[in-house]
Amino acid sequence: ASVAVIAAGTQGNIFATSALRSMRFLQILRMVRMDRRGGTWKLLGSVVYAHSKELITAWYIGFLVLIFASFLVYLAEKDANSDFSSYADSLWWGTITLTTIGYGDKTPHTWLGRVLAAGFALLGISFFALPAGILGSGFALKVQEQHRQKHFEKRRMPAANLIQAAWRLYSTDMSRAYLTATWYYYDSILPSFRELALLFEHVQRARNGGLRPLEVRRAPVPDGAPSRYPPVATCHRPGSTSFCPGESSRMGIKDRIRMGSSQRRTGPSKQHLAPPTMPTSPSSEQVGEATSPTKVQKSWSFNDRTRFRASLRLKPRTSAEDAPSEEVAEEKSYQCELTVDDIMPAVKTVIRSIRILKFLVAKRKFKETLRPYDVKDVIEQYSAGHLDMLGRIKSLQTRVDQIVGRGPGDRKAREKGDKGPSDAEVVDEISMMGRVVKVEKQVQSIEHKLDLLLGFYSRCLRSGTSASLGAVQVPLFDPDITSDYHSPVDHEDISVSAQTLSISRSVSTNMD
């Protein structure tokens, strides 16, 4: 405001104040949320940038038409019409005319000016109207692209899951042992070998009828009888010197917790746990005396209480009078009846079946994303299906024409109403129809010849004498029936064969 007042002088105070007050009108834009329509302006900018070359070309040609039209109309009207006294007036008329506004304040009066105005109007309006069409088509394409992008975003994750499931299904095939990355992934998420051994031990116990592997080994086996189970490696608790092959000598807290839970599941009659010990102070733990958990001091820290809870689970003690015997301790020893080589084939089979199920689920979810969402998608899918159906029908028609023997030239002739090819031409065609016709002709010829021969033979049998045999009239074959199959017997006289037959029969009768 200060700059405006200084620039306008003393009389500019009122002007500056009114100008600043008129800017209050811009507050109405906040009512229509114009300040939060950044996406709309961004869309407009992207459309203009995408079609910038077309817009520049249309505007450039339109500007050239405007300059030439205004100049030529000015030359034609400057002497006869006072409205075109300057080139600026003519340029104003050209702008209003070519933009199809047409105020009518300035019009050419001479015939030359009117002809020039009409010609440049028809030429220039087309170029001035091009930017509107370019922007409209650009907006339509952009909206369609955003629509497809939205659908693509919805299909991206199911497609990625389907590709991942397909690759993992491919890589978990037993015949592709060189693909090891997927197996490394499952090695990292699978439970430890100790848990798998416990699982298979329970399965084997159920197969043995509820007997433990130790009891199965204690059962008497006759001499020479084959053992029911192959000899396997035996594993004891981590306190002993022997372990399962492939295990580490260090046992983690999870393994100890699972070991304690498995020992508690063996039965309360074979294992008696004394009350857990509780320390009397955060600094020292008295293991010899058993106290109640309700006497825990409230001033303990979080670490002390955590250690106390761990001691409740991981440090059970047995009383002296209830101490288990050596046999019970041997039964409680952890027996590992299986090795990694025995378990891994079954584990890989389970993983393979899981990968198949996940692949089928991913495939079903991806197919669900291909379903249409709204009416536009339904129409688009219907149009695509219609085009596909037309293509299939056209391909089927082409194959039928190839089989029947109607080529493209014959199809055009039928469409024009011309006469089709004759039967002889159809026979000569190298097509399925021509071959079928040729075979039918040959079969008819053979059938006719057989009928003639059978009739001749029956007449010979009825006559009974050589004289009557020679008097029999043998009809000749019709050459038209034989089609294109020409037998060497067709052109010979059958009477010669009949005479030869009669001579042979007379000779045979004389010999008798």
Rank of each mutant, 00 (worst) to 15 (best):
V443M: 04
S502T: 07
A467P: 10
S319A: 12
E215A: 12
P222L: 05
N208H: 10
S463F: 13
K449Q: 06
P275H: 06
P238A: 06
G417D: 06
L190R: 06
E201K: 06
R309W: 11
K367Q: 02
R462S: 01
F456Y: 15
S445P: 06
S458P: 13
I354F: 11
T291N: 10
I354M: 12
K348Q: 15
L396V: 11
A498S: 09
P316S: 15
F366Y: 02
P191S: 08
D493G: 07
E289V: 13
L198P: 07
T369A: 09
T234N: 10
F308S: 14
A219P: 13
T349R: 14
S188C: 09
Q286E: 10
T398S: 13
T280S: 04
K376M: 11
V328L: 10
A166P: 00
G239S: 06
H386Y: 12
G470S: 04
N303S: 03
R265Q: 07
A467V: 09
I393T: 01
D255N: 12
E368V: 07
L196R: 09
P408L: 13
M344L: 11
K348N: 13
A424P: 06
K332M: 06
P220R: 14
K376E: 02
S301C: 13
P276T: 08
G260R: 14
I494S: 06
R168P: 01
T339M: 09
L179M: 12
A290G: 14
R258S: 15
N303Y: 15
G434V: 13
Y485D: 08
D401Y: 15
G239D: 09
Y184F: 12
T241I: 12
G455C: 06
M433K: 14
T306I: 10
V378A: 15
F308I: 02
F477Y: 04
R317P: 15
H448L: 14
E380G: 05
E321K: 11
A274S: 04
Y334H: 13
T349P: 10
I481N: 03
D410H: 15
D342A: 05
V361E: 08
C235R: 13
E285K: 08
K254Q: 07
S422C: 09
S192C: 02
K438T: 12
E330D: 04
D341H: 13
A498V: 05
P408R: 13
S248N: 05
D304Y: 15
A233G: 15
V340M: 11
E440Q: 14
H202P: 10
S395T: 10
K412N: 02
G288C: 14
V404L: 08
